[in-house]
Amino acid sequence: MMTKRCCKLLFCLTLSFILTACGGAPDDQPKLAPVSGTITMDGAPLSGAFVRFYPTSGRASAGKTDEEGKYELVFIRDEKGAILGKHTVKISTLDEDNDPFGNQGSETVPDKFNKKTTLEATVVEGDNTVDFELTK
């Protein structure tokens, strides 16, 4: 009888240790800052475009422009923002992350802003407004 109690206690202690360890400490999270802006193509708002900020290390942040060309970056799930520091930026009207086979039609944004991007941005503490005025 004592052995069953010891096993149950050991199981409960092990389970609570695992659950605590899997949660991770808040300090494990990289420092983020809010990023939003407007994207235009030849002076007109670029709606439905995917914008991705790729830091030198760590997870990318992404957003999608609305009808006015406005976007807001999301780091993960409901957590908004991007990692502090320098980023390479890619803008595309195709969502290549969700269709790796490229079966979505034709790209309207020139390669120099996506596949062969020349765009960069630096995210600093506080609110960041990063606008892009693209031209064909």
Rank of each mutant, 00 (worst) to 15 (best):
N103P: 01
V109I: 13
V109L: 07
L119C: 04
T117I: 09
G102L: 06
E120F: 07
K115V: 11
N128W: 01
G102F: 04
D99F: 09
N103K: 12
N128D: 05
D97Q: 12
T117C: 06
E96G: 07
K116P: 02
F113H: 03
N103V: 08
F113C: 01
T117S: 15
D97S: 14
E125W: 05
D99S: 06
K116W: 05
K112Y: 03
V109R: 00
P100W: 06
P100L: 10
E125F: 04
K115C: 06
V109K: 01
E96V: 10
D95W: 05
N103C: 07
E120G: 09
N114Y: 11
D97F: 10
K116A: 14
N103L: 12
T118R: 12
E107H: 03
P110S: 13
T122E: 13
N128Y: 00
K112H: 06
E125G: 08
Q104Y: 03
V123E: 01
G102H: 05
N114F: 14
T118W: 03
V109W: 00
V109D: 01
D127Y: 05
K112V: 13
P110K: 07
E96L: 12
E120P: 02
V109F: 01
N98Y: 09
T108W: 03
G102Q: 08
E120D: 09
P100F: 09
E107P: 02
A121S: 10
N98R: 14
G102T: 07
T108I: 15
T122A: 08
L119G: 00
G105N: 07
T122L: 04
T117F: 03
T108V: 13
D99C: 08
D127E: 15
K112R: 15
K115N: 09
D95C: 05
N114H: 15
K112C: 05
L119A: 03
P110A: 15
K112G: 07
S106W: 03
V109G: 00
G102P: 00
N98E: 10
T117R: 04
G105S: 10
G126D: 07
F101P: 00
N98A: 12
P100M: 12
T122R: 05
P100N: 10
K112D: 08
L119R: 00
E120W: 02
T117Y: 02
T118C: 05
E107A: 11
V123N: 01
N98C: 08
N103G: 08
T117L: 05
T117Q: 02
V109N: 00
N103A: 10
D97N: 11
D127V: 11
D111L: 11
S106K: 15
Q104E: 12
N128Q: 07
Q104A: 11
N98S: 12
Q104N: 11
V123L: 04
E120Y: 07
E125S: 14
Q104H: 06
N114E: 07
N128H: 04
A121P: 01
A121M: 06
E96M: 13
V124L: 09
P110T: 05
N128K: 03
